[in-house]
Design a protein around this nucleic acid. Structure first.
Length: 591
RNA sequence: GGGGGCGUGGCGAAGCUGGUUAUCGCGCCGGCCUGUCAAGCCGGAGAUCGCGGGUUCAAGCCCCGUCGCUCCCGCCA
C-alpha cells in the first residue's frame, strides 16, 4: 500500500473542499461517460463519489475502465464541492466529490454472485454461502454495528450499577431436563461428554453463593432444538443475577436499563414502571403469556352465555369442558370482507382450531351464519357482554381451552395488523408476573413452567403439599410488543426447598445429586436470597432494528437445519480424531 | 415428528390445459458517449429448467423418490 488513508468514505463534507485526501474502499459502481467517469467508493462509513477527469488526471482516467464492482482501491485526490445542482441529497457526502489524482488497485474481485447492496430478494442459500459479501452490504453492516453499540450500552449499564462480569464455562455437564444439549466428547475423558450451556443458570446461582452479589454476562447459549425465524441453535443472552433482592428489585433494575436504551438509542422517553399483568389475566384476555398491548381487542369469555345454546357447536364445547370466547373487532364491519372472515378458519388450523364463527353487526341487524340458532335472550346477553354495537364484528372460537386461547391469540394479532391498530413506532413494554410454578405434562404430572430453581411464592408454599398446580411464583417475563424478550425469577436459596421441588418433579434424590449435586451442596453454605433474569439479546436486536428474521442480527447465522452454509459446518471428522476420542460412529437407522 | 411455500443462465422473474431453436429485466463482456449517481444507447456471450427415476411419440410443465432453502405446529426446563 503506497497510499495511506486519510479519511473514510462517509466523512467528507463541503468544508473539506480543497483538501488532498486518500480514501480506501470497495468500488460500488462505475459510470463511464466517455470523457468524465465516476465510481462510487464504499466502506463501512459510507459512500463517496470519485471523479475521473481526463483534464485533471489523464493517466488515472485512462485506467479507470479497468475497475470493476467490489475491486479494492486506494484513491488519492482532491475534495471539491459539487457543481451547482449536482449535489446528491441521498448521500451524507453528497455535497462533495473527490477528483482523482491517482489510484492504487489493492485487490481485484470476482464478479459478485449478487448485488451486495441489494441482496434482500436474493435467495437465502446464495446469500449465506457468500455471507462475507452480504455482510459488506449497508443493511447487514449497519445491523452489526448497531448490535455492537447496544451491547456496549448494556454492558456499561450493568458495570455502572456495580455488577461484575464473570465468564462461566462453555464446557458444562449435560442435564437432560429442558432443551436438548449439544454434546462434546474429549480425548482426556473417553466415553464422557460435556454439554454446551443452555444457559449459565447454575453457575450464576453459585456466584451468588460466592458473594458476588451482582453478576452479569453476555453469554452464548446453545440448544439443539428446531429452528424458527426468531430462533437459532446458538444465541446470546444477557444473563444477570442479584443477591438480597426480591422481584421488584430485578424489575426496576431492568426498567432502568430499557429506559436508558430507549432514550440513548431512539431518544424516546418511556414511562416507568412498566405495566404488570398476571399470567392468569394475560391468558384470559389475550390468549398467551406475551400479549402485544399496542392495541386492544381483548378476548372475552362467553361460555356461560352459550352453556345451553341452540347452536350445537357452542353448547357442546362448553358441555365437554371447553370454552367459547369472543373478540369484538370494534368498528370493523366495513373493513372486513366475507373473504377476510372466511380466511380466519384456515388461519387457526395450526392450533387445531376447527372454525371461527362471526357476527357482523350491520345497521339492518346482525349478519352471521350462526345467530339464527341463538335465542333472543342469548343474543341479548351476548351483545351486552361484548358491548356489541352497530359496525362491530364479533368473532368466536369454541373448543378446548388451549385451542381457544392459541387460536384467538393468533387471530387477535392478525386483526390488530389487518385493522391497522398497531403503531409500528411504539415500544410497548410489559411485565407478565405470577406464573404458576408447574404446568401439567402429557401425563398430568407437574413439570417446571420456568425452571426447577424457581422459588414458589412464600405465601403459596403450603399449597405444595395440597395443590401443586395452584402454586404461583415470583417469576416475571419481560414482553416487548408481543415478544418475550426476557424472563427470570426469584430463586430457591434453601436446600430443603430445592430438594422438595426436585422430588415433586419426580427427580429422585440420587438423580438430583448426580445432575445438580454441586448446587444442592452449595445451597448449604450460606446461600443468600437471590433472583435474576436473562434477556434474549438477539430478539431485542430484532425488535430494535425492526426485522422479523434473526439472521439479520447475527453475523454468521445457521440455516433451518442448523448448518452453516459458509463454512459447511457441521461436517464429518477424520477416523483418527474419533480414535483419539475413543469413539466409533454407528448410525442407528430409523424405521 | 407433522403441515405449507420455493428451487428455470451469476441474480430476480415469465413459461397458459405437456408440443418446433426456453422468454424478460438486472448483472457480465465489447463498443459509443465529459456529469452521472442502482446513468443512457448499440451489440454480444451465457441456462437442458435442484438431482434421480417414471409416464408419453413428446416434459421445465404430469407421477414417484430425493436433496437444499424457507415459514408454521410440535419441541424450545
Amino acid at each position: 500500500m503506497k497510499l495511506k488513508r486519510t479519511h473514510n468514505c462517509g466523512q467528507l463534507r463541503k468544508e473539506d473542499a480543497g483538501k488532498s485526501i486518500v480514501l480506501n474502499g470497495w468500488v460500488e459502481n462505475y459510470r463511464d461517460h466517455g470523457g468524465v467517469a465516476f465510481i462510487d467508493l464504499h466502506d463501512r462509513w459510507g459512500l463517496t463519489q470519485i471523479v475521473f477527469d481526463p483534464q485533471v488526471a489523464p493517466e488515472a482516467h485512462a485506467m479507470a475502465h479497468t475497475l470493476r464492482s467490489q475491486f479494492v482501491v486506494a484513491v488519492e485526490g482532491e475534495v471539491r464541492a459539487r457543481p451547482e445542482g449536482m449535489a446528491n441529497a441521498n448521500l451524507d457526502t453528497g455535497d462533495i466529490e473527490v477528483y482523482v489524482k491517482s489510484f492504487e488497485l489493492l485487490n481485484k474481485s470476482k464478479t459478485p454472485p449478487f448485488d451486495v447492496q441489494h441482496s434482500e430478494s436474493v435467495n437465502a442459500e446464495t446469500r449465506l454461502v457468500h455471507r462475507y459479501l452480504d455482510l459488506r452490504g449497508k443493511q447487514l453492516q449497519n445491523n452489526m454495528i448497531f448490535r455492537s453499540k447496544v451491547t456496549g450500552m448494556i454492558r456499561n449499564y450493568f458495570l455502572d450499577n456495580d455488577f461484575v462480569e464473570v465468564e462461566t464455562p462453555i464446557l458444562q455437564k449435560s442435564t437432560p431436563e429442558g432443551a436438548r444439549d449439544y454434546l462434546v466428547p474429549s480425548r482426556v475423558n473417553p466415553g464422557m461428554f460435556y454439554a454446551l450451556p443452555q444457559s449459565p443458570q447454575l453457575f450464576k446461582q453459585t456466584l451468588m453463593i460466592s458473594g458476588f452479589d451482582r453478576y452479569f454476562q453476555i453469554a452464548k447459549c446453545f440448544r439443539d432444538e428446531d429452528l424458527r425465524a426468531d430462533r437459532q441453535p446458538e444465541f446470546t443472552q444477557v444473563d444477570l443475577e442479584m443477591s438480597f433482592v426480591d422481584r421488584d428489585d430485578i424489575i426496576s433494575m431492568l426498567e432502568g436499563l430499557f429506559k436508558k436504551l430507549m432514550k440513548d438509542i431512539f431518544n424516546k422517553d418511556i414511562a416507568l414502571p412498566f405495566p404488570r399483568l398476571s399470567y392468569d389475566e394475560s391468558m384470559r384476555k389475550y390468549g398467551n403469556d406475551k400479549p402485544d398491548l399496542r392495541f386492544g381487542l381483548e378476548i372475552v369469555d362467553c361460555s356461560d352465555v352459550f352453556a345451553d345454546s341452540g347452536f350445537g357447536v357452542f353448547k357442546n364445547a362448553v358441555a365437554s369442558g371447553g370454552l367459547v370466547r369472543c373478540i369484538n373487532l370494534k368498528g370493523a364491519a366495513d373493513k372486513l370482507s366475507r373473504k377476510d372472515l372466511d380466511e380466519m378458519t384456515p388461519y387457526i388450523k395450526p392450533y387445531r382450531g376447527k372454525g371461527v364463527a362471526w357476527i357482523k353487526m350491520n345497521a339492518d341487524g346482525p349478519q352471521s351464519p350462526i345467530v339464527k340458532f341463538f335465542t333472543e335472550e342469548e343474543s341479548k346477553a351476548l351483545y351486552e357482554r361484548m358491548g356489541a354495537e352497530t359496525g362491530d364484528v364479533l368473532i368466536f372460537v369454541a373448543d378446548k381451552e388451549k385451542v381457544v386461547c392459541q387460536s384467538l391469540a393468533a387471530l387477535r394479532l392478525l386483526m390488530g395488523e389487518k385493522l391497522g391498530l398497531i403503531d409500528k413506532n411504539e415500544f410497548n413494554f410489559l411485565w407478565v408476573v405470577d406464573f404458576p410454578l408447574f404446568e401439567k405434562d402429557d401425563n398430568g404430572r407437574p413439570t417446571s413452567m420456568h425452571h426447577p430453581f424457581t422459588a414458589p411464592r412464600p405465601e403459596d408454599e403450603e399449597l405444595l403439599d395440597t395443590d401443586v398446580f395452584a402454586v404461583k411464583t415470583n417469576a416475571y417475563d419481560l414482553v416487548l410488543n408481543g415478544n418475550e424478550i426476557g424472563g427470570g425469577s426469584v430463586r430457591i436459596h434453601d436446600n430443603v426447598m430445592q430438594q422438595k421441588i426436585f422430588s415433586l418433579l419426580g427427580i429422585e434424590e440420587e438423580d438430583a445429586k448426580l445432575k445438580f449435586g454441586f448446587l444442592l451442596e452449595a445451597l448449604q453454605y450460606g446461600a443468600p436470597p437471590h433472583a435474576g433474569l436473562a434477556l434474549g439479546l438477539d430478539r431485542i436486536m430484532m425488535l430494535f432494528i425492526g426485522t422479523d428474521s434473526i439472521r439479520d442480527v447475527i453475523a454468521f447465522p445457521k440455516t433451518q437445519k442448523a448448518t452453516c452454509m459458509m463454512s459447511d459446518a457441521p461436517g464429518p471428522v477424520e477416523e483418527s480424531q474419533l480414535e483419539e476420542l475413543s469413539l466409533e460412529i454407528s448410525m442407528i437407522s430409523e424405521e
